[in-house]
Design a protein around this nucleic acid. Structure first.
Lengths: 239, 239
DNA sequence: GCAAAAGTGTTAGGCCTACACCCATGA
DNA sequence: TCATGGGTGTAGGCCTAACACTTTTGC
């Protein structure tokens, strides 16, 4: 069998462009559960079905800008956890046309963008849904969500990412519940406290949150600077 | 300030397609070092400069198929570690045109695809280069390699990925050197052995490799089935 | 017999897990 | 005073990191 010994690549002018979209997997922590923000699809095919919020990427727009745009429009939030996850590029994945979708995943604090989120929810453009079981979504969006849940679980094990789902001031019982929801298991609260507090990454405030008990739970905030510093020293956060 | 309460998205026919490319970060383990396979760019701009091997994605081709195609052409290897890493989509990243690049990273065993690799190397189409320091590459390819090295280091900590860089039969001193190269640190050989062997994931063979010492080192192979089984039980591999 | 790499064991300290009761408060 | 959720401590076992010498063999 003869082997090729050189490689022929198309030049820029010979290459065929492809439609590129961004889809966002947006998680929030509501009523002690991880919820997914889904969007009522407006374009055919499948107009009116639930999908991930997304958009085509404009030729004059960074992909990440498109993702931020979607998140801002739906939640009125900026500067939140938003990270590229994976690009989905099989030829048959979108029955409308050949579309490559770059999926982003995001963790938001639903209360902080509440007004905008409420507006789009009130207009039946979006809604929060349970992830267990996952709802039916168009195209390969269910697969995207599964991958994001997997990533969330993995990431939470070694990065303090659970905090992205809570307000900047939060209680330890709240944080525990976030981790339990992410990892889908119960976590011993004494050990959890010890582990978290040993890291010295949380600053205890002089305030208590009494919304869920008479005794009240101390509020904490996360020390991002200390975290960055420890990261540089090779510290490995682990739950 | 007035908020938008609905979202307008372009339909399929209104959206503008974009050029999509695949670039591959291919690592090999040669002379106890992690090496990167670079490719002499054939198209303008920067024709003749070193770049990552890549290609435009054909409109009728899966992205992953394009990545496999590149790897096969350069190394004659199939079924090796090849995973999507990240998509690079800023508008200015390619001075030739607006091109979105989906970067894949791959770990290969250079000996196993040797004939083809040697051919392309002999033709000065590709060469293996050190990663320390990184060579100058076109466009944002250096950034891609840095991200891949980061990913390699992270991944190696919890997955037995170092094995992808070694032949299917290997010695413990070889494996140690792979991990030292990946993590860029020295690792205590006694502790390394204990940790690796405790996992029972390596099967000791009745053969020795005497190529690097008079005494000879036992050859081992990895027990993939056992690994999968342990994974399902929640076992966490860690170096 | 010697050079060069392979192979081996112990100890001390830290970390994890498992586990059950008291505390503070508002109603 | 009681119901509810918040907060605390300890002991045993396991794992880790640090550490240096013996073995094998070809030359």
């Amino acid at each position: 069998m003869k082997k090729k010994t050189t490689i022929n690549l198309p030049t820029y002018s010979q290459a065929l462009p492809i439609l590129v979209a961004v889809d966002c997997i947006i998680f929030g922590f509501i009523e002690n559960q991880i919820k997914l923000l889904v969007f009522k699809r407006e374009v055919e095919p499948y107009a009116g079905k639930w999908s991930l919020p997304g958009s085509f990427v404009d030729k004059k727009e960074n992909i990440s800008t498109a993702a931020k745009r979607i998140l801002l429009e739906l939640s009125n939030l900026e500067n939140v956890f938003l990270e590229q996850m994976h690009s989905f590029g099989d030829i048959g994945r979108d029955t409308g046309d050949r579309v490559i979708s770059v999926a982003y995943w995001s963790l938001i604090k639903p209360e902080e963008g509440k007004s905008q989120t409420d507006i789009v929810i009130a207009n039946h453009i979006t809604k929060w849904v349970d992830i267990n079981p996952l709802p039916e979504l168009v195209l390969d969006h269910t697969e995207m969500v599964k991958m994001a849940l997997q990533k969330l679980s993995e990431r939470a094990k070694f990065k303090p990412i659970g905090l992205e789902l809570l307000p900047s001031e939060f209680t330890l019982p709240q944080l525990l519940k976030v981790y339990e929801a992410i990892q889908q298991r119960t976590i011993d609260d004494r050990n959890f406290r010890k582990k978290i507090l040993k890291s010295k990454l949380l600053i205890q405030l002089d305030k208590k949150d009494k919304s869920s008990s008479r005794k009240g739970a101390y509020l904490y905030k996360f020390d991002y600077n200390k975290y960055k510093q420890l990261q540089n020293e090779g510290y490995l956060f682990e739950i």
